[in-house]
Amino acid sequence: MQEVEKQKPKSKRFDAKEIISKMGPLLALIILIILVTALSPDFIAPTNLLNLLRQVSVNALIAFGMTFVILTGGIDLSVGSILALTGAISASLILSGMPGWFAVICGVALGAVFGCFNGALVAYGKAAAFIATLATMTIFRGATYVFTNGNPITGNKINNNFFFQFLGRGYLFGIPFPILIMLVAFIIWYVVLHKTAFGRKTYALGGNERAAFIAGVNTKKTTLLIYTISGAMAALAGIILTSRLSSAQPDAGTSYEMDAIASIVIGGTSLAGGKGRMSGTLIGALIIGTLNNGMNLLGISSFYQQIVKGIVILIAVLIDRKKEKA
């Protein structure tokens, strides 16, 4: 009886730690918002908040797709290059006279194909995800420069295409359309990850791939689909960014993979795989966006901003490793 009684308080403390762990990213976001608002009251201006969310939408879309990848213990370094290449191809299709909706579908489909290629290298080629996507990151970036000849793709057909322009610059009910796309994507991927068999397979793959295989999970097919999702989401983000800028820049998306990874890790997803939530990724993207926006409002040099973001990522990684050891 005494042993049972001694274990009860321990169980309660464990539950408290779990709650704090899950609420940590949200508490960090709230504290960051309060701090930035105190230093710059302009931060909470409605126009700035909408602009902040519109900027966050691109990173969040990339991060939603990569969350699946990191939950399996993998990584996708090619998302920034996929963003640039699919954005350039979509813009060129519009310039060639194709309808905006068709160019968007082609861009997202190509992103899915590129992601599928990454998945094939990892699942069937047995290549380490880091090395495979590092290689394809270089290949896709080089392909972007070849395709664009190193020059931005722009023109009146892009500027005057209502459908394409609306994706990145339109408003619906006074809210920038990219924000609505981000929210819809979040709901879809939240349900897929947390309420479907595919989501359970993703967690199982990240927890123990061999055990998942023995349990009947088609690990190769699941891995292939996960990287396909990552590529498609990067492409969608690239199309929105191209629409917002009214041009496709050959160097678009540079280092975007770092912001996406930072958002996911800060949101509580383990780099070792098997642990994390889609809601945490959204909160992490908001933290990164708030940090960027706040430093811009405070007039902090972009050089120092890189240092601050690096420190934040390092802290998040160290916390993640400490959790794994606990």
Rank of each mutant, 00 (worst) to 15 (best):
G274K: 05
K22C: 00
G87D: 01
G107V: 05
G284R: 04
G80Y: 08
N293P: 06
M23Y: 07
L318D: 10
S301E: 13
I30W: 14
L282Q: 06
L32P: 05
I307D: 11
Y227H: 09
G87P: 00
I300L: 14
W189L: 15
I33M: 15
I82A: 05
S90K: 04
R141P: 04
K322P: 02
T67K: 11
G97A: 00
G289I: 09
S40V: 07
G284E: 03
L83Y: 07
G216A: 10
L50H: 08
L110N: 05
G65E: 03
A128S: 08
Y304C: 00
K201D: 15
F162Q: 13
D259N: 14
F173L: 14
N296Y: 14
Q305N: 08
I30C: 13
S57G: 05
T67I: 10
T154N: 08
K220M: 12
V317R: 09
V58R: 02
A185G: 02
M66K: 01
V308N: 08
Q55N: 08
T67S: 15
V308M: 10
E257G: 04
G274I: 01
K8W: 09
P152S: 00
A232C: 06
L318S: 06
I33S: 12
N159K: 14
A197H: 03
M1Y: 15
L121W: 06
L134F: 07
L224V: 03
I19V: 15
G142H: 04
I181H: 13
A45G: 06
Q165C: 02
A215R: 04
T202G: 10
T281D: 10
G231K: 05
I187F: 12
I313A: 14
T196V: 03
S302F: 11
L314D: 11
Q306K: 15
G150P: 02
A262C: 03
F64V: 04
I313T: 14
R210P: 04
F68G: 14
A132K: 07
L27D: 06
I300V: 15
G111P: 13
L180G: 08
G206M: 10
G199C: 06
I214D: 11
G65I: 09
M66R: 03
I44R: 09
Q55K: 07
G299A: 06
T223L: 11
S246N: 05
I187M: 07
F166T: 00
P41A: 11
D259M: 04
A211R: 11
A235I: 07
A326N: 12
Y256W: 04
I75C: 12
I131R: 03
S78H: 03
L93V: 01
I214A: 13
K195P: 05
I307Y: 02
H194T: 09
I30L: 15
Q165W: 03
M1D: 12
A120Q: 11
G125V: 01
H194I: 01
